[in-house]
Design a protein around this nucleic acid. Structure first.
Lengths: 341, 341
DNA sequence: GTCATTTTTACAAACGTTTGCATAAGTTTC
DNA sequence: GAAACTTATGCAAACGTTTGTAAAAATGAC
């Protein structure tokens, strides 16, 4: 216990002048082991703080007790809430979580997948990176499936890889947000959208577009501006929008960061929210309720994504089914001051 | 490659009718291996997607290429920024990150430490849980040191365990925030503090207290209110404070979540910020700049904590020094609208 | 006291690597 | 053509477990 080298099963065997196999069986309550030896060994192991070597255990069984989680970034509450959700369900099952951040980089994602496989993880939860999505390279994921390692997409999925996924219906959420603005009397609705090509951006944009169409409002390209999901990136587009001769009376932001930055600029330019411009975001960030005015948003219960993904994984283990479900969670409209007019 | 079972060194050896040791040496560019065999084996390994089995490698060398990160929670940008910082430095060195969330629970922290040790992690970055701090149990940490596994405290340290740490001088930050309010003409300064007994809370409270003392302002117990770091927990205390016959003209919140919730209540109650009440937070949350008014805060560069911790770890590896540094980073006052008067 | 039966333990192989040492093959030297 | 090298490869043990099978010890039956 006070040595550099951790206690092994052999050390215990030497102590009791028996073989390692006896110790192993005693520790795992094998029925064929004498009750006395079993107790003695267990007590001694407890006393000296014996701890099974997970590496050796993993080598023996070709599994590691570890799960891989790959996310593009980890600096938003959305990702961390998903991780929390995963953890809350999986922690009691004794899994460790190997978390990898790809920075939206395909090569890094590929490298991490390979490393997780090399580490013999028992499952991978993946939120696919933008570059991977763009590149169309999915060999690294097919590799995972070929090895029969459960792969579950969280939040961002890819239809080309036949495996489980938990996503939120971004399209529906965007549609509802846009319709909410329309029902509150907005006619010229702008959208601060996310980058091209990313599923999240496109789906939210499509929800916005189709909702306008349903209500016979022509899509005005001038009212669609690009951001990179970060607050700062909404500043210039918002200035441009509000400087139009015919500025928007409603803004749907691709997320809450973008929306709060936009609100700040709008108020700075002398417009009132929600009277002159109504603003709605997406994600229901933990700070959104405390803004002035408080920000309406679309909640996509990030934590639930993680929890459901974890359950899906466990269900797959139990039932030994290879084809996992694709679950789409419904978004929820959260109405607050920024659209109350 | 398309089999369930991953390719091993033995498979390759069989293919080339040579021994596993030759393959092993060829793959690690051993000089005594014939150039041709080396190239052939490497090319073949590449082709069939051979991947070293990390478990076996780890077993052989009693190390896993993995680092443990233990944090009390993962739902604030502060923790994730630290993790990002760690990752940004350590990723290129090929380490994997095993992230454990203790929920401020001592038993869970102990369990995670043991598991990380069982997994033969090569280092542990720990932000100690509140319960552990309170309980005074540190055997699990001494165990880590006895095994000569580098242990580095991030953000929350404990003096009783002699090892490296990267912290931010909370006392100094709180002192500066309070002094800033005083210099802006505040006389009755309230503090929305964190829970009792937690180092972070106490240090910030002490900075506040000592600053008042320095400026000959008596500490009014009525102006000190408790929160649990969450936004909601600031609502009731703020109402109480602002309902006093002699309400505060300045509020120092223990973090930005608490501060924005407080600001909302203050404005709801008809006070103006900063004219009647100046508010300053702590942590410089990514959303704080976008509030109305924008929130002054104390920046503690969370990402830098992670980066420095990672560098400390690497420096310890290189120099083979056991006694790691205790680095205290300076906080930085960020002045915004909520105190501009 | 022998044989059959039950209980308990030990042996050895395996998981996939690495590595010290031995050995085989190839080259040089005289 | 033997001795002395150099170069290239193989053997076997080790890392810490688990587990099928064999064997030893204890018990019981006669």
């Amino acid at each position: 216990m006070n040595s550099n080298h951790p206690i092994t099963i052999k050390d215990i065997a030497r102590k009791f002048k028996c073989s390692p196999s006896t110790v192993s069986r005693a520790l795992s309550n094998h029925p064929l082991i004498n009750e006395d030896t079993r107790r003695n060994i267990q007590e001694y192991a407890q006393k000296v703080g014996y701890q099974r070597n997970s590496l050796s255990l993993g080598l023996r069984h070709s599994k590691s007790g570890t799960l891989g989680i790959i996310v593009p970034t980890i600096n938003h509450f959305h990702e961390t809430a998903m991780i929390e959700g995963l953890q809350s369900v999986l922690q009691s099952r004794g899994y460790m979580m190997n978390i990898c951040v790809t920075n939206e980089n395909y090569l890094l994602e590929k490298e991490y997948v390979e490393k997780l496989l090399a580490n013999r993880v028992e499952g991978i939860f993946l939120s696919i990176s933008q570059e991977t999505y763009d590149s169309g390279h999915y060999e690294h994921l097919e590799n995972v499936l070929q090895r029969h390692i459960p792969l579950i997409f969280i939040d961002r999925e890819y239809d080309g890889v036949p495996t489980g996924s938990i996503t939120v219906d971004d399209y529906l959420g965007a549609f509802a947000a846009t319709e909410h603005l329309i029902l509150r009397g907005c006619f010229r609705i702008a959208h601060l959208r996310g980058p091209n090509g990313l599923t999240v951006s496109e789906r939210r944009f499509n929800g916005y577009k189709d909702c306008l169409e349903k209500h016979n409002i022509p899509l005005d390209e001038n009212l669609v501006a690009y951001t990179n999901f970060k607050a700062e990136s909404a500043v210039v587009p918002t200035r441009r929008l509000m400087s139009l001769s015919n500025p928007p009376d409603g803004i749907f932001g691709v997320n809450d960061y973008v929306s709060i930055a936009s609100m700040q600029i709008i108020m700075e330019m002398g417009f009132t929210i929600p009277a002159q411009v109504a603003v709605i975001g997406f994600d229901n960030a933990p700070f959104s309720a405390y803004f002035n005015p408080s920000l309406s948003s679309v909640n996509r219960s990030s934590k639930l994504i993680g929890e459901e993904a974890a359950r899906l994984f466990l269900a797959g283990l139990d039932s030994n089914i290879t084809q996992l479900d694709n679950i789409v969670l419904p978004p929820e409209l959260i109405i607050r001051g920024s659209t109350l007019r």
